[in-house]
């Protein structure tokens, strides 16, 4: 299990390759990558991500441990960036390894649902019109109910 919270960019391909290489006996590797999306209504200049150093790492480690236990994973990886990101940049990724694909997919969904509303990150969108904190969505909170 590995959790990384850092400002620096990371190479998704290399992370997936290294994660996969360390997972012998696992038939399924799933990875999800989150990208800074441009806004349809106003061009996004940047996305700023604030976090809670210390709590962030322990919250992500706790999520990864729960996913490993619940879905009998061989391994799990969470990488999440903070700081100022441009549209198109990679924000975060999760990867999960399991003997079979259903557990690997479900565990990735589980991690994403918890990352959305239980990991102490706050996003702010910077446009020509100013800076706005991204509001949490009810549907993200509702998504936790299925777990």
């Amino acid at each position: 299990m590995r959790v990384s919270v850092a400002e620096a960019p990371f190479d998704v391909g290399r992370e997936v390759a290294e994660f996969s290489a360390g997972c012998s006996g696992m038939g399924a590797i799933v990875s999800f990558t989150g990208i800074v999306r441009d806004l349809p209504e106003a061009p996004l200049e940047a996305m700023e991500i604030e976090h809670y150093p210390g709590m962030t790492e322990s919250a992500l480690e706790d999520m990864a441990r729960r996913a490993i236990e619940r879905f009998s994973l061989g391994d799990a990886l969470i990488i999440h960036r903070h700081g100022r990101l441009a549209p198109g940049e990679t924000i975060m990724m999760v990867a999960t390894a399991a003997p079979h694909r259903k557990d690997a997919f479900d565990a990735a969904e589980f991690l994403m649902d918890f990352l959305k509303s239980r990991a102490p990150f706050w996003k702010r969108e910077i446009t020509a019109g100013g800076a706005d904190w991204v509001a949490a969505k009810d549907e993200d909170e509702d998504a936790l109910a299925r777990w």
């Binding site: 989150g34 809670y52 999440h80 959305k116 509303s117 102490p120 990150f121 706050w122 904190w133 949490a136």
Partner: peptide, 10 residues
Amino acid sequence: VAFFPPMTGG
């Protein structure tokens, strides 16, 4: 003790 708005990770 920390206070903050609902989190928006991922």
